[in-house]
Design a protein around this nucleic acid. Structure first.
Lengths: 244, 244
DNA sequence: CACCTTGTTTGACTCAGGTCAATGAGCGTG
DNA sequence: CACGCTCATTGACCTGAGTCAAACAAGGTG
């Protein structure tokens, strides 16, 4: 599990118990949330409620009353929508620094659960919203974040609407690599804490097609299978697939 | 063409010529933009530049410097992304009241052109942005609009990732009907000013599959082919397809 | 009114990716 | 250390939607 080391750095979270006033989480939130300025972070930190969310545990479900806003500080969460017959579409993976539940509607329009052990900072929506009223600059930042998420979603529309299975996997890996680079450092190794089923449900494919595509990339030495992820051997090959 | 009548109500626009200080457009903008309060509209109206965009004409292209923000007041625009090899994904259709180019990035991340004759109100981004700084409430409204667009894009991810051709067409028709209802009134007739190719590129299908699906709906009396659109005969059938 | 042009429909065929089923690999546990 | 569990891989087969091609329909024009 990719964050196992990180979680050991500090007393373990007791299951899904609430863990208020955890200074580690607060510090992590401050250092990790690169989308906001110091001033904004500090005003937010006064209303922070840090929590641990163990792997595979639910953060919130589609339709729940959206009383909280979250900021992921560690680990990875999957955000998804379910159709009544069980089909699932993962609409995104949240990494440290990402906000969840920012849409101003009163109910969550998607579900979120922890892929591996996740740490979040939780805010009461009412107090968060209050901060927004007092600090227009914070609201502007938030709007920037939402606009950015919209652009990402629109890019994903192209992937789901018009790209082949091979291309989808290539786009996915390069995008994920880039996102990890913003948190850690740029590395040819892409951690994949999520399951093949998760990747399939994100890319609008089946688990078998995802598996076969990875196998093909392994066979042709485009990728190397490493524990908990893949290493990109032939960057150019993937790049070509994403650009055409 | 669906807006032909409306366009005749007022002196015709001369090709793609700029048409500043067109009072009709200004009035239309004020009445049609239901997302904003009166006060906000009036402060915006002072920086409005009304324009006519004839059918099939470009509003702006992906990568262009985003010097303007637009609000559609009449007609329909298609918003799309192109892959280098020519594949196209339409990410949305803009109807009266919809904003274009709100993302705060300095370049457009998609292209937009007129499906039928379109009227827009154009704002200089700099002045628009200035208004935002002065009126935090306006910014909040804008953020609501962006959040709403994000939700729509995420719904579309489910459509493109997990739904069959029949379901996609059903979802498309019912969603479009609902959007027209907000502008005109709820009617079983859904205007379709866009081409089959446009619908295909929006739904991640081919033109043939879209055509076949419509034909199937016509044959089974779910839909009736009418000039410039379809009439929904069996609402329950479509509803069933979208809910499962 | 014959002749384009542009968009749509339809049919025949193909294939990328889905489905179903078996096998394998890792891992925690009695 | 055998057992069960979960997840991933692989193979064989199938099918929904794509491809290719022809016919059709509706304007617009010489």
């Amino acid at each position: 599990m990719v964050t196992a080391g990180a979680l050991q750095r500090h007393p373990p979270c007791a299951g899904s118990e609430l863990q208020v006033d955890c200074q580690h989480c607060r510090a992590r939130f401050l250092s990790v949330c690169n989308a906001l300025s110091d001033e904004e972070l500090h005003s937010l930190a006064t209303i922070v409620d840090p929590r641990c969310v163990p792997a595979k545990t639910t953060l919130f479900s589609q339709g729940d009353e959206a009383t909280n806003v979250f900021n992921v500080t560690e680990g990875m969460a999957r955000l998804y929508k379910l159709l009544p017959d069980g089909r699932r579409q993962i609409i995104g993976f949240a990494l440290p620094g990402d906000f969840l539940g920012l849409s101003l509607s009163d109910r969550f329009s998607f579900s979120a659960d922890a892929v591996d052990d996740v740490r979040v900072c939780r805010f009461q929506r009412t107090r968060f919203s209050q901060q927004l009223d007092e600090k227009p600059h914070l609201l502007r930042r938030l709007h920037e974040i939402a606009s950015n998420e919209l652009m990402i979603a629109q890019d994903q529309l192209v992937v789901l609407g018009r790209r082949s299975a091979e291309e989808r996997v290539a786009v996915f890996l390069l995008a994920l690599r880039k996102r990890f680079a913003a948190i850690h450092h740029l590395s040819p190794t892409v951690p994949l804490p999520m399951s093949r089923q998760d990747i399939a449900d994100y890319l609008g494919l089946t688990i078998e097609t995802v598996s076969r595509t990875f196998s093909k990339f392994f066979k042709e030495k485009t990728l190397l299978n490493v524990p908990d992820g893949v290493r990109i051997l032939n960057f150019e090959r993937l790049n070509e697939l994403t650009q055409r």
